[in-house]
């Protein structure tokens, strides 16, 4: 397991958001975390990234507790991460090229020519040829997400986190993001953690699906097992998102 969460609890003021989260993310696979809005999916991903600290419990990345890491260890761990944020989080005062080049300039000793080659290569991989001199404000929502994905992938990370990668996009653009994700994962073989509410479409990409409900992970199962699970929360989620055809054998009888 490349990431493991053990009994993670988190509250904001008096509001408890996570209450004893246990979850394992297997290496080289795609784990999709689903759940209704406001269930703490983004909060959960921020714990894995070390942006939030759990009130209780541990988040282990490669066996090391992320909250106990020193600055150097945290930096080393994060060099293996690539993140696509919900709103893409592009730096709006610099161009698309500079956005994608930023991790290369700050974290590697590559020359300007090498950086240019790498950035253009990644932009091309994500069908973004010719937009490198544009500013984020001049791009559509789908293009911003693709630039965000290009930036997340530019250092060829081992783990890629995608927080609601298709939020605000129409069906066509969402399919495009999924297609590009599939293409890049096949090429680089990274572990993917996707937070999404785009069920059932997202199930096609998933090796494992985890449902967060009632502040807990209700199960982390393969898509087939997930659809046939007897857990009441999972059953309700499947019925809600896929219709009553996908219910467990016990119920059908």
């Amino acid at each position: 397991m490349i990431i493991r969460l053990e009994g993670v609890e988190k509250s904001f003021g008096t509001q408890k958001v996570l209450n004893g989260i246990d979850l394992s993310i297997p290496e080289g696979r795609t784990t999709v975390i689903v759940g209704a809005s406001g269930q703490g999916k983004s909060v959960l991903i921020k714990h894995m990234l070390g942006l939030l600290r759990a009130d209780c419990g541990r988040v282990l990345v490669n066996g090391l507790d992320i909250a106990a890491m020193n600055k150097k260890q945290l930096k080393e761990t994060r060099t293996k991460f690539g993140v696509l944020f919900q709103g893409a989080a592009l730096f709006d005062s610099i161009t698309v090229f500079d956005n994608v080049a930023l991790p290369l300039r700050e974290r590697t000793h590559m020359t300007k020519i090498q950086i240019r080659k790498k950035v253009l290569e990644k932009l091309s991989l994500l069908d973004l040829d010719g937009v490198d001199q544009k500013y984020p404000a001049q791009l559509s929502g789908g293009m911003k997400k693709r630039v965000g994905l290009a930036r997340a992938l530019v250092l060829e990370p081992r783990i890629v986190f995608l927080d609601e990668p298709t939020t605000g996009l129409d069906v066509k653009r969402s399919q495009e993001i999924y297609r590009l994700f599939h293409r890049t994962q096949a090429q680089f073989g990274y572990t993917a953690v996707i937070v999404s509410h785009d069920a059932p479409k997202i199930f096609k990409l998933a090796d494992y699906i985890a449902l967060i409900a009632d502040k807990k992970i209700q199960g982390c199962l393969s898509p087939e097992d997930f659809q046939l699970s007897d857990n009441p929360y999972i059953k309700a989620f499947v019925e809600e998102t896929m219709g009553s055809i996908y219910i467990s054998g016990t119920d059908r009888s």
Partner: peptide, 21 residues
């Protein structure tokens, strides 16, 4: 605005120290 639009979080996730940068 950088904080609100998660740009500072993005810097941290890229292992770029926002204080330094």
């Amino acid at each position: 605005i950088m904080r609100n639009s998660e740009q500072i979080d993005a810097l941290e996730c890229m292992a770029i120290d926002p204080f330094r940068y």
